[in-house]
Simulated scan of single mutants.
Amino acid sequence: MYFKVRIRKWIARSDAAPTPTSTSTGMDRTRSTATAMAEVAAAEEELRRGFETLEVVQKDPSIPVFHIYLNRPAQRNALTLRFFSDLPRALSLLSLLPSARSIVLASRGSHFCAGIDLSVLQSAPSSPSADPAAAADLLRRQIVSLQAAVSALERCRKPVIAAIHGACVGGGVDLVAACDIRCCSGDAFFAVKEVDLALAADLGSLQRLPAIVGYGNASDLALTGRRIDAGEAKAMGLVSRVFSSPAALEEAVDLIARELAAKSAVAVMGTKAVMLRSRDQTVEDGLDYVATWNSAMLMSRDLQEAVAAQMQKRKPNFSKL
């Protein structure tokens, strides 16, 4: 009873008339709001202009879910150098939109992704210097840039769901390993193929897969380059759900994305951030980080609204970020 009384007082205080503030503070807030609105408008305009290798779609303007489609179906969505600038830019723009509460990463055509386009492997940057160390440094910087493009998926504030059908090979595995939730259709298959191209996978599979499927399974996939089907991918934890067909996959993933979008953006963002930070830390360090995070975020209006909605037996109306 004491807890309920305290919660009611807390909600009542939050609903009370705001304390008068200075004129300068009000003007600052107005300018800040205007700047944010201008950024959102600019992001929406850039998204409308589109991308060379991607298609970004909001299927229903009333539902805060966006789809990013790999859009080179004739090439089985092989990843070109342009893709590695398009993807992080699209994610950066979507992170600004209050109308984007969750994101689906999917593909046009018969396959999710056939991996890195061979033209990328054949176009290593040439150094103006004859020094092999300078050439190596230039190549390293290009690899780091490509890695950052893939890492943009897990660094995105919004949750990203991978919807995988057909082939998911090489660089495709790098992409889905960086997503928050992975689902596939029964026709999907996966392979970490870089070893067969005489190189070590360098865009994240070797770093992320052990945490997803276990070290032994990750070693098996990375060293043999063998192909696994949807059933084996589900058994080892690479995907969490398998659906009967690409159409069933699309329908199910859209529902998952809508459900995520209906939750508190503050809570979803915080959960994603804390899980990523804790993944490579000890339990003690992870607990310390989430304590620091929640000390800043627990007093959000979304928490007040969630408690009020529970008490009043209604659907919550969460803030937009």
Rank of each mutant, 00 (worst) to 15 (best):
Y2C: 00
R6H: 11
A17W: 09
A17I: 11
S22N: 05
T25A: 12
G26V: 09
S32R: 15
T33R: 12
T35K: 13
A38M: 03
A42M: 10
A43D: 03
E45L: 05
L47G: 05
L47C: 08
R48H: 13
V56T: 02
V57G: 00
K59N: 02
D60G: 09
P61M: 00
P61G: 01
S62K: 15
H67I: 07
Y69H: 13
N71S: 13
A74E: 14
F84P: 04
F84L: 04
L87A: 03
L93N: 12
L94D: 06
L96G: 07
P98F: 13
S99V: 09
R101V: 06
L105M: 02
L105A: 04
A106W: 04
S107Q: 09
R108Q: 13
F112A: 08
G115D: 06
G115N: 06
Q122C: 10
S126E: 14
S127M: 06
S129G: 06
P132E: 00
A133D: 14
A134K: 12
L138F: 09
L139H: 12
Q142G: 04
E154N: 04
E154G: 01
P159C: 10
A163R: 11
C168W: 12
C168N: 15
V169I: 15
A177G: 02
A178H: 02
I181E: 14
F189K: 12
A191H: 02
V192G: 07
K193M: 14
K193C: 13
A201E: 06
L203Y: 08
G204I: 06
Q207D: 10
Q207W: 11
R208G: 04
L209T: 03
P210S: 02
G216A: 11
G216S: 09
A218M: 11
G225W: 05
R226T: 02
D229Y: 11
A233Q: 12
A233M: 08
M236A: 01
R241S: 11
S244N: 01
E259P: 05
L260K: 03
L260I: 04
S264P: 00
A265K: 08
S278P: 08
R279Q: 14
V283H: 02
D285K: 00
G286I: 00
L287E: 00
D288W: 01
Y289E: 01
Y289W: 07
V290N: 01
M297V: 14
L298M: 08
R301G: 14
A306M: 14
M311S: 07
N317W: 10
F318A: 04
